[in-house]
Computed example of a mutant assay.
Amino acid sequence: MAKLYFYYASMNAGKSTTLLQADFNYRERGMSTMLWTAAIDNRSEQPIASRIGLSADARRFTPGTNLWREVTARHEDDPLACVLIDEAQFLTALQAWQCARLADEAGIPVLCYGLRTDFRGDLFPGSAVLLGIADSLVELKAVCHCGRKATMNLRVDESGDAVGEGRQTEIGGNERYVALCRRHFAEQLGMYR
């Protein structure tokens, strides 16, 4: 029985690395996979790239992409053992349900990897649905500078100062975001004053 998995974490927890390792494991055994990532994130030549240097080609989804239709069309030509989706926080609610349908009706395991919350501590729409409907939730761990588990994503400006307002989505890496524990996140944003 295929399942829908959601691997979530803060920035710098190794989500893309874990996805690429899972993909490698399937392909090493001669199984076909299909990789997806959000079209909005175009920082790298390879659509999926980890900070430790691993990368892979992938299809890019936009809010208008019908994952059910595209994945099942590919599955008819080349049976898929697994679908892996990076940057799953950018899925729409409908796309998250299409992932569930792929597991339920097409019998294809779907492994989604993404952020749980944005720089304000609010759930991303895709993450909210996945947290509600996934068969398996797996939290990947990142570490705050204090050594505690980092669960939050602090956005910083060019000077390294905390940013508490703005668009939910602003693509960036270590130059724009810092993974922190809840306490240090709240202190940086002045929430505990």
Rank of each mutant, 00 (worst) to 15 (best):
K3R: 15
Y5T: 07
F6V: 13
Y7V: 04
A9R: 01
M11G: 03
Q21V: 14
D23Y: 02
D23G: 12
D23W: 01
R27V: 08
E28A: 11
R29V: 00
G30Q: 12
S32H: 14
T37N: 11
T37R: 07
T37K: 12
A38C: 13
I40P: 01
N42Q: 00
N42E: 00
N42L: 10
N42H: 08
S44Y: 09
P47G: 03
P47W: 02
S50L: 03
L54M: 15
A56Y: 06
A56Q: 11
F61V: 08
F61K: 10
T62S: 15
P63E: 14
W68A: 01
W68C: 01
A73Q: 15
R74Y: 10
D78Y: 03
A81L: 07
C82K: 02
V83Y: 07
E87T: 12
E87I: 12
E87G: 05
E87L: 06
A88F: 05
Q89G: 11
L91N: 07
L91A: 00
A93K: 14
L94C: 02
L94T: 15
Q95H: 04
W97I: 02
W97C: 07
Q98N: 09
Q98M: 12
C99T: 05
C99V: 13
R101H: 04
L102N: 05
L102C: 09
E105R: 08
E105Q: 12
E105T: 02
E105Y: 04
E105K: 10
A106N: 14
G107K: 00
G107Q: 01
G107W: 02
V110Q: 00
R116V: 01
T117K: 11
D118T: 11
F119C: 13
R120Q: 14
G121K: 04
G121L: 03
F124R: 06
P125C: 00
A128G: 03
A128D: 15
L130M: 11
G132T: 14
G132D: 13
A134T: 12
L140H: 11
L140W: 05
C144H: 09
H145Y: 10
G147I: 09
R148Q: 13
M152K: 12
N153H: 04
V156P: 06
S159A: 03
S159W: 08
S159N: 15
S159R: 13
D161M: 11
A162P: 15
A162R: 15
V163F: 02
V163W: 00
G164M: 06
E165I: 08
Q168D: 13
E170H: 11
G172H: 13
G173F: 12
N174R: 10
N174K: 09
A179S: 15
A179C: 15
L180I: 01
L180R: 06
C181S: 11
A186K: 08
A186H: 12
A186F: 09
L189V: 09
G190W: 15
M191V: 04
M191I: 07
Y192S: 14
